[in-house]
């Protein structure tokens, strides 16, 4: 679009103002996390005169950073691999099979896509207790698989249609079994959609708050977000400490964002268009 200089300048101004607002809370959290309580109260905006990293070492211990991060990693990795494993198999087969049974199973997966989590959280906690998956990191991952698999089935189902059938037929003639054909021939071709699913599910599971809150009671099992929530409740006036914890919690995703920005944005755009 060709714009005259005046409106182009106004747009730049608007974007810059937006950028300042976007970054402002993050900036405030970072600079105040390295101040002392006293220095912070003289001015929140000013840069710190000396860097006080004590807040970080304190926050590091208070949120059991290594342990909580490890828990978050376990839940995310297991949850995502589980979703991909189950959904790729199901989505592929449902897409390739015609007939009433296949269509029925597919609609069964789709049927619940609009059900809000809050509508099932009560029976879900009962179910989790009954199956002994509540209260453990691994159990939490299993529940995430159950909650995330339908969306992934849907995405795989759509993507498989773009893959020519001839490949499977050739493999079968060469004597490949069905599962073997899938893992050796088809699954590698699904990488683009697998990446999309992995990204969307990572952002969801890593940042999720309510499900871990409902499922985990033992603080050694807490995810990063949950530990930070506890700290926020316990030290509600010690802002430098809290801010240090918030920065530590936000850091991993910001780093991942830095490295994988392109994939993340692509993943969101693709997930939205297909979903």
């Amino acid at each position: 679009m060709r714009l005259n200089k005046g409106s182009s300048f106004l747009i730049t101004l608007f974007l810059c103002a937006g950028a300042v607002i976007s970054f402002f809370p993050i900036y405030l959290a970072i600079i105040n996390s390295v101040k002392t309580q006293g220095e912070m109260f003289t001015s929140f905006i000013a840069l710190p005169t000396r860097l006080h990293f004590e807040n970080y070492s304190q926050a590091f211990h208070k949120v059991h950073l290594l342990n909580s991060t490890l828990n978050s990693v376990i839940v995310s990795v297991l949850g995502i691999s589980g979703i991909i494993f189950c959904a790729a198999l199901a989505g592929y087969k449902l897409s390739r099979t015609s007939g009433r049974l296949s269509a029925m199973i597919f609609s069964l997966f789709i049927a619940s896509m609009l059900v809000p989590f809050h509508s099932i959280m009560i029976p879900l906690t009962r179910m989790a207790k009954a199956l002994h998956v509540s209260g453990s990191t691994y159990g939490l991952a299993v529940i995430y698989i159950g909650l995330g698999v339908n969306m992934a089935v849907f995405l795989y189902h759509g993507f498989v249609k773009s893959i020519p059938r001839e490949l499977e037929e050739a493999a079968r003639i060469d004597g490949c079994g069905e599962f073997q054909t899938f893992w050796r021939i088809i699954f590698p071709l699904l990488v683009p959609i697998t990446v999309t699913i992995a990204i969307l599910d990572f952002l969801w599971i890593w940042n999720d708050f309510l499900l871990p809150l409902l499922m985990l009671t033992d603080s050694t099992k807490y995810t990063l977000i949950l530990s930070t929530n506890t700290l926020f409740g316990e030290y509600n006036k010690e802002w430098p400490l809290i801010l240090a914890a918030l920065v530590l919690t936000a850091l991993p995703v910001i780093l991942i964002y830095g490295f994988f920005q392109k994939f993340i944005m692509q993943g969101i755009a693709e997930g939205a268009i297909k979903g």
């Binding site: 930070t228 919690t249 993340i264």
Partner: peptide
């Protein structure tokens, strides 16, 4: 960027 940070955080 703000979208990367968990809502509760």
């Amino acid at each position: 960027m703000p979208n990367m940070i968990s809502t509760i955080i």
